[in-house]
């Protein structure tokens, strides 16, 4: 059975459902907007703050959006059907992870535009690099996020658990993206941060799909 085709089918399905309903992107987008406005007002909207506020907002948006990866299936009573299809559950992981990456990347682009407007930072000239760095971080967020989305599925109080699990575990992503975003905007050296993000991504990619199969063991 072709795993890539199955994963692609899952990704396409998730993205299509999201596009038709726009539930996740709306909720996460609004939360991110709110956080940026709040932090920008309280902490200050100097360009120096922009990177930090952006990635804190992305972190909280991710906390809200990631449970939808699996909760969407439960709401449709489609989870059991999905798990009973023959073939490795790793394919499900990759499909959902890919869809999540696309959604968070779309959110990032929207937030970068917002940053340009609200904080007066020059995102337009550096757009490519900013998105590139962002996607590097988002990949890590999505990989660990997809695992956590499955993990909290059958636990009571899952809305509380997601921030408790995601934010400490994904802290390197937030820190790395903040520093790299700053570096791009101010034209300073990136230092070791690309290595941090890459190693996080590599470790997650190696470990999370296997653990996903463990977590999704029973229906």
């Amino acid at each position: 059975m072709n795993g890539f085709l199955r994963a692609a089918a899952v990704a396409r399905k998730d993205l299509r459902v999201e596009w038709r309903g726009r539930q996740t992107i709306t909720a996460t987008g609004m939360v991110a907007l709110l956080m940026i406005l709040l932090l920008g007002f309280v902490v200050g909207s100097e360009p120096a703050r922009a990177a930090a506020i952006l990635w804190v907002a992305m972190g909280f948006a991710a906390v809200l959006g990631i449970p939808r990866v699996t909760q969407g299936e439960v709401d449709q009573q489609a989870l059991e059907t999905l798990l009973l299809y023959p073939g490795s559950r790793e394919h499900l992981f990759w499909g959902k992870c890919a869809a999540l990456t696309v959604m968070l990347s779309a959110l990032l682009v929207a937030l970068l535009v917002l940053l340009g407007v609200l904080f007066g930072v020059d995102v337009w000239d550096h757009g490519g690099a900013l998105v590139g760095v962002g996607v590097l971080g988002i990949v890590g967020l999505s990989v660990i996020g997809t695992l956590l989305a499955a993990l909290v599925l059958h636990v009571r109080g899952r809305e509380l658990l997601m921030p408790l699990l995601l934010l400490p575990l994904a802290l390197p992503v937030v820190l790395g993206c903040v520093r790299l975003t700053e570096a791009i905007l101010t034209g300073t050296a990136a230092g070791l941060w690309p290595a941090v993000l890459v190693s996080f991504d590599v470790v997650s990619v190696l470990v999370c799909p296997i653990l996903f199969e463990v977590v999704m063991d029973e229906v």
């Binding site: 660990i144 695992l147 400490p168 575990l169 802290l171 390197p172 820190l175 790395g176 520093r179 230092g191 070791l192 941060w193 941090v196 190693s199 996080f200 470790v203 470990v207 999370c208 653990l211």
Partner: peptide, 15 residues
């Protein structure tokens, strides 16, 4: 996952 992540968390916080 926590244990594997801790070294990365540590170095990112230090740097």
């Amino acid at each position: 996952v926590g244990f594997l992540d801790v070294p990365i968390i540590h170095y990112s916080v230090v740097w």
